[in-house]
Design a protein around this nucleic acid. Sequence first.
DNA 1: TAGATTGTTAATCGATTAACAATC
DNA 2: TAGATTGTTAATCGATTAACAATC
Lengths: 210, 210
Amino acid sequence: MDPLAIPEIVIGRLPLYLRTLDLLASQGQTVASSQELGSRLGITSTQIRKDLSYFGEFGKQGTGYDIQYLREQLRSILQVDRCWDVALVGAGDLGHALVNYADFERRGFSIAAVFDKDRQKIGRRIERFEVLDAVTLPEVIKERRVQIAIIAVPAGEAQEVADMLVNAGIKAILSYAPITVTLPEHVRVHTIDPIRGLQSMTYYLNPDQS
Amino acid sequence: MDPLAIPEIVIGRLPLYLRTLDLLASQGQTVASSQELGSRLGITSTQIRKDLSYFGEFGKQGTGYDIQYLREQLRSILQVDRCWDVALVGAGDLGHALVNYADFERRGFSIAAVFDKDRQKIGRRIERFEVLDAVTLPEVIKERRVQIAIIAVPAGEAQEVADMLVNAGIKAILSYAPITVTLPEHVRVHTIDPIRGLQSMTYYLNPDQS
DNA sequence: TAGATTGTTAATCGATTAACAATC
DNA sequence: TAGATTGTTAATCGATTAACAATC
């Protein structure tokens, strides 16, 4: 099946399904119905079955899904049955938090190198990494054929860093800078902006606060 | 207009518009068309005009939008023309990064207190905050009538923390724990899971990596 | 067998966009 | 006036869901 024939919104939900199955597996559960997954995620069972049906038939009537098997299938579909090297740009507080984030490894990613352009930070250690000079970024990324990067620099530097990453061959970027970066369309970008989430919740809040 | 009559997906885009207008304003620009906003955000100008039309008429034919005026209007709609107190739970690396995140203040939020349950962390300082014992969370939140909280604790503790927050009166939660927390429907939750974003990009990546 | 649940079709629902009159 | 752009309607497009046969 052509990967692009499947709606992006469906692809966006698969990691949610996988995450939920991981949780159930860690609790020792071996089988789950679309009903159970749905109620845990707050979506309908029909939607889950429909989403999965784009890729094949993974369940058993009357029973549900074998958790182990469906996890394997989803990992294969999402290509996280391998481990992807990730370049991290920005060795500030957020960079530190990301280096220490244990979930990356468990879920298919491994930080391969940490860069910063600040003289104060270059050469310092963050856990197992030495912070590398950002000018060496292109060669390191090219040499190691890294395809994924995380941007954890201030908003004002993010576009410049993104351009540099793309020139070095990066194909997917997770950006923590609260701006919309503009890139060639063959490069995928996900932006994490915590304020965006907060601001769309305050819309619904009661105005009376002390 | 009844706030609930407007599609949530529209509300979700307003912070994007505001963020872009903030950027343009900081560059000294005074007027912007829906066309310009759209091309910066990668969405159509029609969609922007349609979204804004739920709330009123803010533009001028032939000219576009007065940036200053539209910012004020959007801030008012989103209720970020005031500053909201936010309780932060979790004083680890991520908590540190959030305390130091300058954008909160500029965009309508102010961290009011930091909590942790770890004896090692309680009493320590993070910038201007003393880390408070999580058992004091209900009283502090109730007393200060805080409505918003950020969860920055490990996944295994997140549901418990969320329940505690809701009992204390919290109405909106931004969670960095990679699980789906289950809460009463009058409470809004936004979950930030960086791996989710990465996993939906690897789907499209070329499998050949060194 | 009876009960449960899948996978899929067709209907419904909702969001996006093309088109355009209004007007600055 | 001519050109540009808004606000809005109606058409289109795409996503969700109800319904149900198949089957474990």
